[in-house]
């Protein structure tokens, strides 16, 4: 089990650098532990970037629901027939 001392020490980054990593962070795409530590540290003390991150997260949730469009019956029928005929 990793302890606290194994974690990379966070470097101070500015808001532009934080923005560069923001979407990767929100999409769980940051694999570099140093980058992760840096943005988490920045978000912990920058109110503006924290608010931005919070809003982007909310927007992500809203987008998932906004994409929920029912499949037209005509398309479903076509696909059912296509699958039956394989």
């Amino acid at each position: 089990m990793a302890n606290e001392s194994d974690k990379p020490k966070a470097r101070e980054i500015d808001c532009l650098e934080a923005f560069d990593h923001l979407y990767a962070y929100l999409n769980n795409e940051i694999t570099d532990q140093a980058d992760l530590a840096n943005i988490e540290h920045h978000l912990s003390h920058c109110k503006s970037c924290y608010s931005r991150a919070e809003m982007e997260q909310k927007l992500n949730q809203r987008m998932k629901h906004a994409g929920e469009t029912p499949i037209p019956a005509s398309l479903q029928d076509r696909l059912n027939k296509l699958i039956d005929d394989l």
Binding site: S51, R52, M55, K58, L59, R62, H65
Partner: peptide, 17 residues
């Protein structure tokens, strides 16, 4: 952009998005 309003996303409709 640097000072987003908290209620902004709540006020958006799905069609706006």
């Amino acid at each position: 952009w640097a000072n987003p309003e908290r209620e902004f996303t709540n006020n958006l409709l799905a069609e706006d998005l």
